[in-house]
């Protein structure tokens, strides 16, 4: 062990590490966590598996001559550019919320449990900055995962199911460029919805040291709002339920684009994001490190 010498300090007056450096370091860490990698890999496979499933089913139904199918799934056959949209809608049922919840759980509760949050606070990274870095990590990885699903979905869709342009639910055909625009729009809309859930999960994550609790609570929120929206007597609750926006996502493949519904979904998500992050920040400021 050698003695350390003074004078190695390079930025003696700096009170904060450069933000970009912190964000890069956070992303590098999150993307090296085995749990994250497994989930990312699984999600990237979802569109491919869905595509193969539809491809096989289409063959079977072509033989039986019966292809009447409700909803999105029935439109995807022979219409490969719809596969990414379909896969994201499927993913939003469970896997993507799970991903958002897990990322949020690891971000604060997990770091608190392993003691790594303490070392960061001592560096020091201020509490509000730490939350910002964590929120950035969750948000970026979410966007990455959703975009990855759309990417594998588009590739798998074009290869397995083919199709020229995108046939919309309204029975019109969009040229390739516009179709890719719709896919990108779906990516953004789905990402914002996952962000909303992740924000709520992050608030829970700031309150506990047990990542599992965060995942359970977040999925509980999803299931509960699903149940509430299924009860006709509680229809008046629908406009405030997170899942209402999720169910509106397939609207993205209607033509013309029903901007009203989609904007409302984004605004609703924004409300949840504001609530989630302010609660998380509040707890971060007061919690013991």
């Amino acid at each position: 062990m050698t003695a350390m010498t003074l004078g190695e300090i390079q930025r003696p007056d700096a009170r904060r590490a450069p933000l970009g450096r912190l964000l890069r370091s956070e992303l590098r860490m999150v993307l090296r966590r085995p749990r994250t990698l497994i989930l990312v890999g699984l999600l990237a496979l979802v569109p491919v598996i869905a595509g193969i499933g539809i491809w096989i089913a289409a063959d079977a139904s072509a033989n039986s001559g019966n292809s009447v199918d409700e909803g999105l799934a029935g439109l995807v056959d022979g219409n490969g550019l719809l596969l990414p949209v379909f896969a994201l809608v499927i993913g939003l049922n469970m896997l993507l919320p799970l991903t958002g919840a897990m990322l949020a759980a690891d971000a604060l509760a997990g770091e608190a449990a392993s003691g790594t949050m303490r070392t960061l606070l001592l560096a020091p990274v201020s509490r509000s900055r730490l939350l910002a870095v964590k929120a950035f990590g969750v948000a970026t990885v979410t966007l990455f995962v959703v975009a990855l699903m759309a990417f594998t979905g588009t590739i798998a869709g074009v290869i397995l199911l083919g199709g020229d342009g995108m046939m919309t639910m309204s029975g019109t055909t969009l040229p390739l460029g516009e179709a890719l625009g719709r896919i990108l729009l779906t990516v953004l809309l789905v990402t914002v919805q996952v962000w909303a859930l992740a924000a709520v999960a992050l608030a829970v994550s700031a309150w506990t040291e047990h990542p599992l609790i965060v995942v359970v609570v977040a999925l509980g929120v999803v299931i509960l709002s699903g149940v509430l929206s299924a009860i006709p007597a509680l229809d008046w609750l629908d406009p405030v339920l997170m899942t209402t926006s999720w169910m509106g996502i397939p609207e993205v493949i209607r033509d013309p684009l029903p901007t009203g519904t989609l904007t409302e979904g984004v605004l609703r998500a924004a409300c949840y994001i504001v609530i989630g992050y302010s609660l998380a920040l509040s707890r971060m400021l007061s919690r013991d490190g």
Binding site: R11, A17, L22, S25, M29, L120, A123
Partner: peptide, 11 residues
């Protein structure tokens, strides 16, 4: 990772 958070350390 911790070094990235150190204010006094030049990148």
């Amino acid at each position: 990772r911790l070094a990235a958070a150190e204010p006094h350390l030049h990148s």
